[in-house]
Computed example of a mutant assay.
Amino acid sequence: MTKNAFRRRAIASLLLATLLTQTPTWAEEFPSRPLRIVVGFAPGVGMEVSTRLLAEQMGKELGQPVIVENKPGAATMIAAAQVAAAAKDGYTLLMLNNQTANNVLLYKKVPYKNSDFTPVAGGGVVSMVMAVSKTVPVTTGREFLKYAKDNDGKLFYGYWGAGGSPHLLAARLASSTGLTLQGVGYKDAGPATADLASGRIQLFFTSVTHGLSMLKAGTANIVAVGTPERLPSMPNVPTFSESGIDGMPNPWWGYGVPVGTPPAVIQKLEQAIKAAVESPRYQAMLASTGSIPMPVSSPAKFQEFIEKDQEKWAAAIRPLKLELD
Rank of each mutant, 00 (worst) to 15 (best):
T227K: 12
S233L: 14
V225C: 08
E304F: 13
T209G: 08
E278C: 01
Q267R: 03
Q283D: 10
P228E: 15
A264H: 01
G244N: 04
E242A: 02
I292Y: 13
P232M: 10
A272G: 09
N250E: 12
S233W: 01
I266E: 09
G260K: 14
P232A: 09
T206W: 00
S207A: 11
S207V: 00
I273V: 15
I273K: 12
S241W: 02
S279D: 14
S243G: 14
L286Q: 08
S241M: 11
K274R: 15
Q283M: 10
G244T: 05
A220I: 00
N221M: 07
E242V: 01
S213P: 03
F240Y: 15
P249D: 12
G211K: 02
T209R: 10
D246S: 14
G226D: 15
N250Y: 03
P295C: 08
W253R: 06
A264P: 07
H210S: 14
A224K: 11
N250S: 15
Q267M: 01
N236M: 09
P228T: 13
Q267W: 00
M294A: 12
G256K: 03
L203F: 02
A276P: 11
V259D: 14
P251Y: 00
F205T: 01
V237E: 01
S297Y: 13
P299W: 12
S213C: 02
V208R: 01
W253N: 10
T239L: 11
A276S: 14
E270A: 14
A275Y: 02
T227A: 15
L286P: 04
L215A: 12
N250K: 07
P258S: 12
N236Y: 06
V277W: 04
V296K: 04
K301R: 06
T227D: 04
Y255T: 00
S243F: 11
E304C: 07
P235I: 10
G226V: 11
A272P: 01
V259R: 15
V296M: 12
I292G: 05
N236E: 05
A275H: 01
S297C: 04
A217H: 03
E229C: 05
P235E: 06
T261Q: 12
M285V: 10
